[in-house]
Design a binder for these strands. Structure first.
Lengths: 140, 140
DNA sequence: CTTGCATCCGTAGCAAGGTACGGACTGCAG
DNA sequence: CTGCAGTCCGTACCTTGCTACGGATGCAAG
């Protein structure tokens, strides 16, 4: 059972600064501070950090989580709607990201293939292109 | 034929600030400034920006391009080796990124499926979980 | 009482790739 | 001559998710 922020951090496998960051973001509830001394944490903080890690593993952003946390105070149906909305939006965003990366992947793979095919023929268009852009030397 | 930075920017479809950013990064050669007046650009700047856009489309980073540009002054064989190295490294990085995103994609899709399956049964574990983390209210 | 680690708190910095701003200047049209 | 758009230049800001720093305090052991 965690008592102080360092215990929470170690228990969740994150740094103390990270816990404090989550608190600033409002994702982890910061226990009230006694007028002197250290804050007293309980299991809730640990659970909240684990939920953050879970959500992060699914690709949700901190901003997404803030929205969902705000909605969690409302009725279950509303909350579920918000969850589905957020998850669907993030799914679309991630699909778009994957599509963009796949295009890049193909372009890079093609480039490598061309490189190997040209092999020793030594007609790299990029090298020619880059040096054509500095025509000072070729003009003499 | 571009004359001033604004012409270059319009011609390349980027902002003036972006051209200046590439100049600061050393990816676009900035023509010498006359003691008074405006710099005079030629086609080279346009070509360099187009190469940047191409490389970006393949997923190369600005840092990658800096390295390659530095190598372009050397012999062709050295340059080609550096290109292959950079491209291969970036390809690996992008594959890793795609793999990570695919995991997230699956997790999100699963979550949505679970949401729909639970449908009106109203037993969302996330809602329960979040509210269990604030047990103040349930204790009464 | 002193050492020494932990916490508290605000603030600043990192990566990446730009974007924006403010004040001074330039050059051209009216 | 004046107005106005465009440049020049340095610097600050943006996003995201942390991470680090520095000075002040707290607390327990020796």
């Amino acid at each position: 059972m965690p008592r102080r922020i360092g215990d929470v951090a170690r228990g969740a496998g994150v740094g103390v600064e990270t816990v404090r960051f989550y608190e600033r973001e409002g994702l982890v509830d910061q226990p009230l501070k006694p007028m002197r001394g250290w804050r007293e944490y309980d299991e809730a903080a640990l659970g909240q950090i684990n939920q953050i890690k879970l959500a992060q593993g699914m690709g949700l952003t901190i901003a997404d989580m803030k929205v969902l946390k705000a909605r969690a105070k409302g009725a279950r149906a509303q909350f579920c709607g918000a969850v589905r909305e957020t998850v669907a939006a993030r799914l679309d965003a991630i699909d778009a990201e994957i599509a963009a990366l796949s295009l890049k992947r193909e372009a890079l793979a093609d480039w490598l293939k061309q490189c190997r095919r040209r092999g020793k023929r030594g007609d790299c268009p990029l090298y020619a292109g880059i040096n054509a852009l500095a025509p000072k030397r070729s003009k003499r």
